[in-house]
């Protein structure tokens, strides 16, 4: 309990500093522009659907999450952090505080998007159940992206590890790309080997992409509820795995802040 209080104190401090630095105006400005361009009702005949709302909002919020978490990792990687790390808060608490602020800002943006669309351009068949069905996997994706970006920051991983993991993500992301199939003949030896590697390295990230699809379409809830639950479970498992790897790496590395 005492540890949670310390983490919350650190989270509040980082949030207050972020607020006072004025950086939150970037997120707020982006939100206003996004809402004006994509969420407003262009004419009386146009009707937004929940799928369209989540399709656009998910991309916006996830991109904003990458930006905010990068900012947060930068704030954690300053010499001021030494004084905080010297406290009994510890390394894990330090990282959790940074994660929480980035996650809560993104969550707030999602809620604001929902509020704006409900007030100015309510999608058809819009109720709490439909919103919850799309928001739940999206919120888990926000947490996952926050944890991943924090893990891939120079605060947590060394350069070699970061490049390796980015390479894996890039390879996994090629699975649906035409570039891959055009460059390597799928039936050639190299093509087969790369396809196998691509499939293997793509497995860990499957919950992230499946969660995005579930948030946008919400089809799995109706067609196969077990599949939907498996996706949500996979997202939670991946979040735990990424966080655990982040803690493990941060606990063991030499901390040279602001380097």
């Amino acid at each position: 309990m005492a540890k949670l209080r310390q983490i919350w104190a650190w989270t509040s401090f980082i949030w207050s500093e972020y607020k006072r630095s004025g950086r939150f105006l970037i997120e707020f400005g982006a939100l206003i522009i996004f809402a004006y361009v994509f969420l407003r009702k262009p004419n009386t005949a146009a009707h937004l659907t929940a799928t369209q709302f989540f399709g656009m909002t998910a991309i916006f919020v996830l991109c904003q999450t990458i930006f905010t978490t990068t900012m947060m990792a930068g704030m954690g990687n300053r010499p001021q952090g030494y004084v905080v790390l010297a406290r009994s808060l510890g390394r894990k608490g330090y990282l959790v505080g940074l994660f929480l602020v980035a996650f809560l800002i993104s969550l707030m943006n999602l809620l604001l998007c929902t509020l704006i669309v409900t007030l100015i351009n309510k999608p058809i068949l819009w109720d709490a159940v439909i919103w919850g069905a799309g928001a739940l996997p999206l919120i888990l994706d926000i947490a996952l992206v926050t944890a991943l970006v924090l893990l891939l920051s120079s605060l947590v991983l060394s350069q070699g590890w970061r490049l390796s993991i980015l390479g894996v993500i890039a390879l996994a992301s090629l699975s649906t790309s035409d570039i891959f199939t055009n460059t390597f003949a799928p039936n050639g030896s190299l093509g087969k080997i790369l396809a196998a590697i691509r499939t293997i390295v793509g497995i860990p990230l499957t919950p992230l992409f499946a969660g995005f699809e579930l948030a946008v379409t919400r089809q799995a809830y109706e067609s196969n509820i077990n599949q939907a639950l498996a996706i949500l479970g996979g997202q939670i498992a991946l979040l735990i795995a990424v966080s655990a790897f982040g803690f493990f790496a941060f606990e063991r590395r030499d901390i040279i802040l602001g380097a």
Binding site: A9, F13, E17, P79, Q80, V84, R87
Partner: peptide, 22 residues
């Protein structure tokens, strides 16, 4: 070369740090 969160007063800063320390 200690760098601070200079938006705080000394009292606020020490109180925050005390909170992180339990």
């Amino acid at each position: 070369r200690l760098r601070y969160h200079t938006h705080c007063s000394a009292r606020e800063y020490l109180t925050y740090l005390g909170n992180f320390g339990g």
